[in-house]
Nucleic acid binder design. Sequence first.
DNA 1: AACGGTAGGACATGGGACGTCCTATGACCG
DNA 2: CGGTCATAGGACGTCCCATGTCCTACCGTT
Lengths: 246, 246
Amino acid sequence: MARPQRSEEITKRIIDLIVERELPPGAPMPTELSLMEDIGVSRNSIREAIKALQALGIVEIRHGYGTFVGSAGSESLQTWLLFRTRARGATDVGRLRDLLEVREMLETELTRRVATDHRPDLVEQLQACVARMKRKGPDAAEADREFHDLICAEAGFDLARELTGLFWDVYRIAESELGGPASSPTATAKRHQAIVDALLLRDADAAAEAVHRHFDEVRKRAKAGPYGGFGVARPVPAAHSETVRR
Amino acid sequence: MARPQRSEEITKRIIDLIVERELPPGAPMPTELSLMEDIGVSRNSIREAIKALQALGIVEIRHGYGTFVGSAGSESLQTWLLFRTRARGATDVGRLRDLLEVREMLETELTRRVATDHRPDLVEQLQACVARMKRKGPDAAEADREFHDLICAEAGFDLARELTGLFWDVYRIAESELGGPASSPTATAKRHQAIVDALLLRDADAAAEAVHRHFDEVRKRAKAGPYGGFGVARPVPAAHSETVRR
DNA sequence: AACGGTAGGACATGGGACGTCCTATGACCG
DNA sequence: CGGTCATAGGACGTCCCATGTCCTACCGTT
């Protein structure tokens, strides 16, 4: 007995192999054939394990060329997080709130740290982003993203930066599915300007406060959406629930 | 042309299927056979797609019984995060620092929110955890985890709570692999006690400060570890780097 | 020397067979 | 009559093999 998921075992073995050999991202993985021989299972089992690894960004597969060690970037989690917010009814806005909340917490603290310790030209770059936000269009959203990413990058914590980027992306996708009202460019620019001002003064508390106000703005916009607010879990229709067995 | 990864396409289709039918976690997925017919690909392709979904916790497979919709809990990310911190040499402590930093940011803000708004008996439960911490042993670590989880749960943001739990687990595993010094039970208890005290007074700033001090303690301990500190990226040995093609 | 065709390596997809695990049903026994 | 065990059926797990597709590198031609 003690047959705890053959393929999971294979997955672990492959990961260990990468870690032990200290293969850097981009390094070629052993051939599926040699993996077969090393681990002693069939090719299909290897392929399924590799597929699981691919879903986590741990390996990258290039058709016809080979499999390579991946960087395990946060993009891999987009599917996960998106599913998590869409599951059980895309109209349940409560999950969107969670997303925003985590972003707010992370960015508040990140901004706090950056406020007292940042390169002089950071403010200029941020200022440029704010200017771009004022012009309506697809570039405004891009500038918004860059604005937040600049601050997160400045803090120097890769993981935190990637996570906030991930949350930003997923929030935007989920929000667009719900079709909320568009944001006002001038209001958005104003909120971001307040953050820049606080950073310029190197005032951590003011910066944190400005970030909070910014998120208040976003929340207010989301509340005005088609489902009337966060936390209002729409009752799940019973239509399909009888498909549940047991 | 335009052959964007057959299996990735299948993965998306399956996710959409779950979302559209609003299948709740635990609901049985369609049979692999019926999926084959619906999507029109072979069973192997379906299986690979499902395998990828399983790696993300989106579906759960019970051998010999069926496949079920998963809850996409944060446990699924453990492999990802663990790999991310172990990749390219387990001795690179810089990644551990990132882990701690995110935890600190999240917990600081979470604690801040909980400080001014929490159930009266939360403090009692926390106090009980602190008492357990004072006794050395495996239960002390468990009490530590419960302590933080209690606070995160109180805030009411599932996502944030799960993430902090995930970071806690991964940090502990990664740390144990590095084999740092054990923490002093009394010092640990003292730091946690300070947090409880601040919560009792419903003083958000004091609570945040206490959390910071707690993490300072953890950082200090990690710095005393075998690799002499955070951020000291050990140079990657060139031994295997010539295996990189291109 | 530059170009293009071709061979080979590696992954993608498809189909089938057999083993294993779980559940449920029904016969058997107390 | 009720409880227990054996068996049948459904569904996933593993494996094998064949063919398609993509990329690289080599080599012959111009």
